[in-house]
Amino acid sequence: MAVERSISVKKIAKHMELAVVAGFEGITRRVSVEMLARPGVEFAGFLDFYDKERILLIGSKEAHFLRLFDEVIQKSRVEAVIKQEPPAVIFSVNVDIPEYFLELGNKYNVPILKSKERTTPVNSKLYSYLRSELAPRQSIHGTLLDIYGMGTLIIGKSGIGKSETALELIKRNHILIADDRVDVYETAPGIIIGQAPKILERYIEIRGIGIVDVVQMLGAGAFRENKKIRLVVELEPWDDKKVYDRLGLETEVYEVFDTKIPKVTIPVLPGRNNATLVESAAMNQKLKYLGYNAAEQLVKNVAIKAAGKGEDDEE
């Protein structure tokens, strides 16, 4: 189940390296939308479509527009906006903050923030950050790794060997993203990102051994914070009654937030090396993304041979 999120202005200020210059008591305000407001018509007195849930970003253009009015009108127009208590107001580096903004920020407990960057970079970085942080999330029971650059999510019932398989893959220089619980969110249609909850980052649980810190054991390169999920591998107990796909022509999918991700089902049986199988599945899927499908190529070659168009095997 997806969870709606919000983030505090204090956390945003820390991440974006913004200085708080007024409205300190409002620093704990929560932001729940990723869109930003660039007030123009609002400063002209038109507030019919003003969204008070958005952070206000003021750059050189907005500041210059305000200066077209005398200071009394400026303060009146700005107060009409600030008194609706937006989450925060951010000024870009080249804009001098008028004194009345500081007064109004303190009066209505609206944080007034100052950036070290120009308007366009601030707008781009802040939007990307908010979109990532505020995207609906859901948790999946599984293990996520970066295998040959492919974000590979390993799922299956408890005790099937997901973590043990992951540990073997990490020892082969592949990278752990999350073990046991994977938090996933959608940054854009079709792009699903997975990461570990903060408290579980770097750790992997192995039954009979306990908790393992892969960074301490194998180095900093054994872990990364997040990865786009491009393949799902499901481990399941071998079932003699089930007919498994032996060519790889069938296409399974795993759906997350209406996005269909390619899925491979690997039956677990004593004597089978699960790590090698998962590694091969990731590489095979990567080849498919690059336009080469071994199963389809084999079928095509067989069809050509059956039609008598191929070269003879022997002279």
Rank of each mutant, 00 (worst) to 15 (best):
N274W: 09
A294E: 14
W238Q: 09
V268N: 02
K162D: 05
V31R: 00
A13C: 00
I204W: 00
G159W: 06
K116M: 12
A63T: 13
N284R: 14
Y292A: 09
P98N: 08
G26L: 00
D183P: 05
Y127E: 11
E205F: 10
I229T: 09
E279A: 08
D146F: 07
K125A: 11
E168C: 03
T152Y: 02
S163D: 02
N226H: 12
L104K: 01
T119M: 13
A63G: 13
M150W: 07
H64K: 15
L249Q: 05
Q195G: 14
R77C: 02
A281S: 12
V232P: 01
I177L: 10
K107V: 05
P270A: 06
I7V: 13
Y108I: 08
M16Q: 04
L247M: 08
E201I: 12
V41Q: 12
L134Q: 02
F65H: 13
S280N: 14
K228L: 09
I82E: 09
K11L: 06
Q74E: 13
K227C: 08
Y127C: 11
G161F: 10
T165E: 02
F49L: 15
E34S: 15
Y185I: 07
E103A: 06
G248A: 03
V95D: 02
I155P: 10
G26A: 01
G26T: 02
K242L: 12
E117A: 15
K10Y: 03
Q195R: 15
L176A: 01
F223H: 12
F43W: 11
V232Y: 01
K286S: 14
V182M: 05
A275W: 05
E17C: 04
N226G: 09
P267L: 06
E85H: 11
T187C: 07
A22K: 00
I155L: 11
I55T: 06
R272Y: 07
P237C: 07
N226L: 12
P189C: 08
K228C: 10
N274D: 08
K10V: 00
K114E: 05
P86G: 03
V31L: 00
T165K: 04
K75P: 12
T152C: 08
I155H: 09
L249K: 02
V302H: 12
V72F: 14
H141G: 09
F24W: 10
G271S: 11
L176S: 02
L130S: 05
I304T: 11
S115H: 01
L218S: 07
A275T: 06
P39H: 11
I27R: 00
E205Y: 13
A19V: 11
A306C: 13
K171C: 08
A22M: 00
G208H: 05
E99Y: 12
F65M: 14
Y108P: 07
L47V: 05
K227M: 09
E103Y: 03
T265H: 04
K260M: 10
T276S: 15
E201W: 06
A88P: 03
E315N: 14
V214C: 08
G45S: 04
I261E: 01
V232Q: 01
E17S: 07
D240Y: 14
R30A: 11
V41I: 14
